[in-house]
């Protein structure tokens, strides 16, 4: 009997359960991705939440203040204005854009329409432009002596130029028009791919039963597209709540301007977070709190959308 075996017999231990061979390979393949995810996603998420519970002190280490930063949000007039602006963008722009995308997708799914490929490419084209480029372009087009005002004056729709970018109301309208232009084609592609997966037999039997096109759209297409509509609604909600590029580029003076848009009308929550970190006296701790406010709002809105759509999974 060898020494090794004698030692083993003297110290009986439960054998270590080995992972099945396939599991070991699986874990080794995804280990790098897991480490990177943990380092660059999980750690910042946890770290920023911990940061949101601290407040800076002059000359000292930040102090743990429990949820005071969160209570401060309710009294912060600038945050409330940013929240109001963001919600206005969300409530008005998102439904218009999704409805428009759905109508365009329904039309482009109609086999009787000629040149569908051309229309599809043309309408999707805005989605490939960079956010800064299209914001700058729209800022030029919507300026007081820009193309849009010239056109509207020429067809005598208005008697004096509309102050698209210098009036709080029109500034919001301009950003909404620009966002709708940029994102409608993108959402349309999702709807179109969903519609192409709906079997033709359903429409055929509906036609035989005497259903008209509108009834087919509302009773077949929309119910079957519900998961995709939910997906686009949630991604659009998140996108709108993180709105940053358009307001900063539309505001004269960009991020360095005193106000974002006339009378801070384009100040969104994401812009406010930027301002808290880099424009005002840096307060990363409060900025982390505002970031978590967005997380909470997105969670609530997504939950409401799930409930409205009646999705269980």
């Amino acid at each position: 009997m060898t020494d090794k075996l004698m030692i083993k017999m003297a110290n009986p231990r439960r054998p270590r359960r080995k992972l099945p061979r396939n599991d070991r390979y699986g874990w080794s393949f995804i280990s790098l991705a897991v480490v990177i995810l943990a380092l660059f996603m999980l750690y910042p998420i946890v770290s920023s939440f911990i940061m949101s519970l601290y407040a800076p002190r002059q000359g000292f280490q930040p102090k743990f203040v429990y949820f005071s930063n969160y209570l401060r949000l309710f009294k912060d007039q600038v945050f409330l204005q940013a929240l109001e602006n963001t919600l206005i963008f969300f409530i008005i722009q998102v439904p218009i854009m999704l409805l428009l995308a759905l109508c365009l997708a329904a039309l482009l799914n109609n086999k009787a329409i000629k040149l569908r490929g051309l229309f599809r490419v043309g309408i999707f084209l805005p989605a490939v432009t960079s956010l800064v480029t299209y914001s700058t372009l729209f800022k030029m087009m919507f300026s007081l002596d820009g193309l849009i005002n010239k056109f509207l004056l020429k067809i005598h729709l208005i008697s004096s130029p509309i102050p698209w970018l210098s009036d709080p109301f029109w500034a919001k309208v301009t950003v909404m028009i620009a966002m709708t232009w940029r994102w409608t084609g993108y959402n349309m592609i999702f709807y179109l791919s969903g519609m192409q997966n709906i079997p033709d037999e359903l429409y055929e039997s509906a036609t035989i039963d005497g259903a008209n096109s509108f009834q087919q759209l509302s009773k077949i297409t929309v119910p079957l597209l519900k998961p995709i509509i939910l997906f686009t609604a949630i991604t659009s909600t998140i996108g709108t709540l993180q709105l940053f590029d358009e307001p900063t580029n539309f505001a004269s003076g960009g991020v360095t301007a005193a106000t974002i848009g006339p009378g801070n009308s384009l100040l969104t929550i994401a812009v406010y977070i930027y301002n808290l970190c880099f424009k005002y006296m840096p307060n990363y701790w409060y900025a982390a709190t505002v970031s978590y406010a967005i997380v909470i709002i997105v969670a609530i809105l997504s939950f409401v959308q799930f409930k409205l759509a009646g999705e269980r999974q």
Binding site: L104, L107, A112, L118, F119
Partner: peptide, 30 residues
Amino acid sequence: MKMKMKLIFIRLAQYLFLVAAFVIAVFPFY
């Protein structure tokens, strides 16, 4: 005949909507 006219009008409206969307989408590139 009336039904056919209605269908033609609907198709015309569909094309008009698509062309308008196409022009608005492509115009800024010009």
